[in-house]
């Protein structure tokens, strides 16, 4: 394995939400294959600053694949070519010497570009605010072991709750649908006894907000599941659909 590679980067640059964007080509010489993709971007930015240019803005924070802040559509894939990997965990050893790497921001109406590769994902927060909670005030809780939860349900709820809210599902979906994101929360609470009381309202409210934000609908291509860095299964979307149908059937709201 060679220790350094040379790449041509084609990066989307856009001054702000209102400006026209365009691709700018950067010649990246001597990229260590041990770097993460974001570290490679750091190196690019350091070079740009020293040349008196503006660095490329991109979102990131934990760099451990858990905060969900990093994004980037790399060579036609959300978070780049590796499955189950966020951009911050993607390492340069997966790129070939001489390769051209195209870097674009997440593209979706409800994710408008703020600058360069940074997009606004506050629509996700609003979906959660619409119903992604269990109404329990601090101090009201019964003993944690008062209600046993079957291990299988707890594990499945956890698998859904592992969502990091990065938006890769939307970015990858041909319809820019956020159904995987919404379903992860609906499904988590639907599986737990604590979530039962509000289950019909929750799914209605969250789906409604999802649609209001302008996300597309799910056409079951499975691209979201394939791109999800936490490998969240579309079976959660099925469960959400079930919850939704149940809520229509119940119809007391």
């Amino acid at each position: 394995m060679s220790e350094t590679i040379n790449l041509t980067l084609k990066v989307w640059r856009q001054a702000d939400a209102g400006s026209e964007g365009r691709f700018v080509i950067y010649d990246m010489q001597g990229v260590s294959t041990h770097m993460s993709f974001l570290e490679m971007m750091d190196v690019l930015n350091e070079r740009l600053i020293k040349k008196g240019e503006e660095p490329v803005a991109f979102d990131h924070d934990c760099r451990e694949g858990i905060c969900g802040m990093c994004s980037m559509f790399i060579n036609g894939r959300a978070h780049g070519p590796m499955d189950a990997t966020t951009t911050c965990q993607l390492h340069m050893r997966h790129f070939k010497d001489g390769e051209t790497v195209v870097v674009e921001p997440w593209r979706a109406g409800p994710f408008p570009v703020i600058k360069d590769l940074v997009v606004d994902r506050s629509s996700f927060d609003r979906i959660m605010q619409a119903g992604g909670f269990i109404s329990v005030n601090t101090g009201n809780a019964p003993d944690a072991n008062a209600t046993p939860v079957p291990k299988a349900d707890a594990d499945e709820a956890f698998a859904a709750a592992a969502c990091i809210g990065c938006g890769a599902c939307v970015a990858a979906c041909k319809n820019a649908s956020a159904m995987l994101f919404v379903s992860a929360k609906v499904s988590q609470f639907a599986l737990l006894p604590q979530g039962q009381v509000e289950r019909t309202d929750r799914v209605q409210a969250m789906v409604r907000q999802h649609d209001l934000e302008g996300f597309g609908g799910c056409t079951n291509t499975g691209a979201c599941e394939a791109e999800c860095p936490k490998e969240i299964s579309i079976s959660h979307i099925a469960r959400m659909n079930r919850e939704y149908l149940f809520s229509i059937a119940k119809g007391d709201k």
């Binding site: 101090g139 079957p150 594990d155 709750a161 988590q188 737990l192 604590q194």
Partner: peptide, 22 residues
């Protein structure tokens, strides 16, 4: 101890044993 109660009530999926307890 109250923290754990609160979190479970919020739907935090802590690891559980086969009997369903934490």
């Amino acid at each position: 101890a109250s923290i754990i109660d609160q979190c479970v009530a919020q739907g935090v999926p802590f690891a559980r044993e086969y009997g369903g307890l934490l």
